[in-house]
Amino acid sequence: MEKTIGQIIKEKRAEKGLTQEQLAEILHVTGQAVSKWERDESVPDVTLLKPLAKALGTTVGELLGEGTMETTRVDPETVDLSKMLLKIHVDSKGGDKVRVNFPVSVLMMLTENEELMNMILSGKGGMFKNIDFNQILKLVTLGVMGKLVEVESADGDVVGIWVE
């Protein structure tokens, strides 16, 4: 099911750690306006789309539901790993939601430390135990960006992994 613009705004705002009031202040609108957008009771004015996307660290296309960027390959020399995020989204059949945004630079440190990595992998019921972070890092260092994995399991769980 495609996400609404309200859901996307809410999700991106949470990822940035902004409150509705803080986002409203950046855009010179009221907190109520942001609240209405997120509940899909109204939509942002077209003139606000660019500043809104900028404030949320995304693109206008993504706000409008074009989806996160598809997998792309960039020149590994130009990749700045210190700015990159590994995003893991899990929506379980039971309605549980897990969102993890992990700086790639921190992930690199983790993969060098077996003890710590095991601790992370066993967290939240071992939800991440089947993710091969070393392979993901290998892809990233080769310049592969965007959506890396999307899984809809037979149990109804949906897992997505992005690097952006």
Binding site: A14, E15, K16, G17, L18, S82, K83, L85, G95, D96, K97, V98, R99, V100, N101, F102, P103, S105, V106, M109, K124
Partner: peptide
């Protein structure tokens, strides 16, 4: 490393579990 990342890139929600 997290402190360095925040200084460079700003606020971030690391984990959210519902």
């Amino acid at each position: 490393e997290l402190k360095r990342w925040k200084r460079k890139n700003g606020k971030i929600t690391l984990v959210e579990v519902e």
